[in-house]
Amino acid sequence: MTIFNLPNLGLGVGLRHQHFDYILQHKPKVDWFEIISENFIADHGWCKHALMQIRQDYPMVMHGVSLSIGSTDPLDKEYLSALKKLSLEVQPAWISDHLCWTGVQHLNTHDLLPVPLTEESLNHICQRIHQVQDYLQRPLILENPSTYLSFAASTIDEWDFLNLMAERTGCGLLIDVNNIYVSARNHGFDPLEYIKKLHHQAIVQIHLSGHTDLGDHCIDTHDQAVSESVWQLYARLKRYTGGVSTLLEWDANIPDFPVLHQELLKAETVIEGPMPELTLESAPEPEPDLVAPTTQASPVSNPIHFVVGDAQ
């Protein structure tokens, strides 16, 4: 199997346990769902039961947060084995994770930490992607993370890093346009250039989500609607790719399913237009006393959708 055999699943949403009952009762017209693999790997309760019921009616993709492909620790074989076991049950269209590391010394920060974009990292990560793909017997799909720092040691632009990674390993790309926007605001690159320079044929999936704008930087909070700037970026990427599987993520302040669904359906109608708020040339440097108010006291990046729950 190569990434070129992977289907366009249409428009999907991240499956969250708050919506299990609604989905089971109403069977909403969503093309597909994406699950957080780690929430089901060690679960034998209601959540896993509901997942398998929902799976009977919808295609699914498994999206992980603990592969830690960029870590210098050895690959976690126990985790890979559990991931493969879950994939045999769920039969996902593909398995994805992030271009990041989550911990070393056998610890897990449960965050998606940035890697220095160097030849050393690229070689290390490509070698590990080969190992994972050989083990899972399928191409791995990797997502660009939102980042809040970059390293002075980096010598490769992120889009080039992703392109080289896909070229050398045959892995696919999951492009999160909100992450591109957040990182662009945090590091000062042009998100349009990023999107333009990606190898579009390697893109298997697109992620959409909301962020918190703090004026002088942005946090990837997944707690609100997709911003107009991100929709515009999506429209551009949609044109470049010709349309690929698209998924809306919402992990904090999760709305009722119909609200989430309406937000997703905007992806059908979004058309490319002017992006006055988007380009860095037009994004003014905020004055310290004009920093936009945050929606929460301390917005958390990459919120975890942690499940503790029974049947209702």
Partner: peptide, 20 residues
């Protein structure tokens, strides 16, 4: 180690990860 040529400083950038 951290780039500081644009926007907020190194401590503030690291603090996002520490707080998160």
């Amino acid at each position: 180690i951290i780039n500081t040529s644009y926007g907020i400083g190194a401590d503030q950038r690291l603090a996002i990860y520490q707080r998160g």
